[in-house]
Write a protein that binds this DNA or RNA. Sequence first.
DNA 1: AAACTGTTCAACCGCAGAGGT
DNA 2: GACCTCTGCGGTTGAACAGTT
Length: 315
Amino acid sequence: MGRAPCCDKASVKKGPWSPEEDAKLKSYIEQNGTGGNWIALPQKIGLKRCGKSCRLRWLNYLRPNIKHGGFSEEEDRIILSLYISIGSRWSIIAAQLPGRTDNDIKNYWNTRLKKKLFGKQSRKDQRQQQQQFMRQATSSDGMKQEAETGDVNGSSGLPAINYNWHQQTIVGPVPGMMMEGHRIRDEVDESIRKLLYKLGGPGPFATLQVPQCVPPMCEGSPSIMLPSCTVDTTSLNEGGMQGSSTLPALELDQSFHFNQVKLDSLDCFFGMGTDQSMRWSEVSPLVCPNNTVASSSQGLQPYCHVDEPANLGMK
DNA sequence: AAACTGTTCAACCGCAGAGGT
DNA sequence: GACCTCTGCGGTTGAACAGTT
């Protein structure tokens, strides 16, 4: 069977919008609104465009008060904090940045912010490092199996650490939030915290679960664990999140490792001196906030265990 | 100057969920 | 409850542009 197409693709124009099309769409919506029906809208205006395309064009480009380009460091911080906390939920992130669209933020993250964070590498180097990473990962049998089977219940026997979603300042540990011994950007921090509180639901014990660890990759530094926080997002999915069950922590972890676990490039976000390059163990609070990353009795960094948000309160 | 490579970003695609019947 | 339509979202693509060789 299959799903009926949203429009007749043969008779619909694709590709970049002409100024005339923009003008038509803009003036119509400004005068009449969308009428609550994007599908019918192009016919009303006489545009040979798909309704979805009209909606996208309006939301991402024609809508009033849209900002393009020129992301400030403040915005970078907000995006980073939220990405670390909630992942690629661009619409939610965009809602915290007036004038920004989800598409804009997504593009910005994928093309610039990632590089700004992880440093610039050639694709060849990235491939080599990824291959090396995978080789090392697969040579660590036990952990590998656990990672593959998605042992989200922490049945490895490693102790779980509980992190209270609401009692902590989620983004607090982000180094940039502290500068010269005193806290800055409290308003932004607070607003993000409120958002995360909302996302985490009303329950006072709602917490984030980060159940897995990937074995240490630091050659010659067996005592350093690199927590790869593959997160059980079942609760998030229940709350409307779609897509991967892996939060960006894993990606961050791998990227950190691929870049020799040096985080010099974070300096621009967090105001660190260049001589203060950090290793994962120092930066892990970014992903697993303060008391989620505690050393176990075995000297291993087990994993962050944070109980799931009872109720996301989304939409 | 030409060819090649990398980057950016607007736009498309398909899926999932909401809401109506 | 089943089905259908529409909307919104996130991932991906590809054209245009910029930079490099």
